[in-house]
Nucleic acid binder design. Sequence first.
DNA 1: CACCGTTTTCAGAATGGATTGAAACTTTTT
DNA 2: AAAAAGTTTCAATCCATTCTGAAAACGGTG
Lengths: 197, 197
Amino acid sequence: MAPRPKHADATRDEDIDRFIEAWGRMGSVWGISRTMAEVHALLYITGDALCTDDIMARLEISRGNASMSLRSLQDWGIIKRVHRRGDRKEYFVADQDVWMIFRSIVRERMKREIDPLLVSLHEIRDHTREDGQKAASDIDERLDAMIEFFETATGLAERFIGPTGPGLRLAASLLGVSDKAVKSARSGRAARGGKNG
Amino acid sequence: MAPRPKHADATRDEDIDRFIEAWGRMGSVWGISRTMAEVHALLYITGDALCTDDIMARLEISRGNASMSLRSLQDWGIIKRVHRRGDRKEYFVADQDVWMIFRSIVRERMKREIDPLLVSLHEIRDHTREDGQKAASDIDERLDAMIEFFETATGLAERFIGPTGPGLRLAASLLGVSDKAVKSARSGRAARGGKNG
DNA sequence: CACCGTTTTCAGAATGGATTGAAACTTTTT
DNA sequence: AAAAAGTTTCAATCCATTCTGAAAACGGTG
């Protein structure tokens, strides 16, 4: 039967590499740089506390790059520093709760992107309004529609990521998204038995 | 009587410029290029059907760039071509329904980013599984957690953007996102101050 | 306070994505 | 079928962001 090869560790490392690559590619989606995503991937998937040198070596990146990525990841609140007694190095661990990671990222992105956009939209609309010119009324309506959308979306997001807890899971059940629904929604590949609570 | 300044059009154009700029800046968030977002902004906010030359002139971009942006926007399904009788040019109009725009964008991003990620994650997990090595079991768990998250999120998103209709509005009420947000959902009016709880 | 291991900073180099512009192509008109 | 009008493609170029590497700063220790 399945022989347990001595190169099990090498296999494991390969899998880790693949995960890092996949997650790094996602970086753009979340608006973070590839390297930053890779550093996070490494910390998340290993679950270990790693120091800067570990990360530099594993990812083959410069010290400066590692330092900056780690800093950003901390700013985003998805990794934290840990100290080891008798060791002068800093170690880093990734938050292991995927929902938390998601919340942190969404919160940060909203703060950086959506909030300023809403400010701009309001400024523009206030301006078109106070001019009171008829010419702008159609534009006004479109601005209104957009502002309304983003404010509703913001409100929704705050529910999800707010301090009230793991809102998404709640939302999932509220909306009746069952495992079945999820499975059948995925066409093509999907045979597997992921399970837990 | 509202005073009707002769520079009304100039003022309007300025407002449009500001909107284009704000929306263009958002481009990165949605993973589309700045110019593409600006073209969309122009079409959306004016509500007009514009031809390539109009867009080139207004945005001061090259023909090639305009052509490619328009093409992408069509691929994303948020603008469409219109034909005018007796005119050989193609004109373009933006979908005026903000919810539809959002749905199109989310659908497209999921197809391009999340689905491939999920495929990769499954491949990696299947691989760590079939090796059956103990060393990988902790990694397995983390992969499981991540897969479960993305599948739930995907299922949720499909609810929102599915053909069933304006799911987000429904979601908003289901989740009890302040009645304010939902009420002001009636077109034409809006009050500042998105805080709620 | 001088030393040593470590982290941060930052100017310049490298990289990759966006943009141009002109040629190639398509469609309509005469 | 040639000309005219409009659109798309793509190699070359531009530009913004990311990355490097070495120097500066930090912070304990003896």
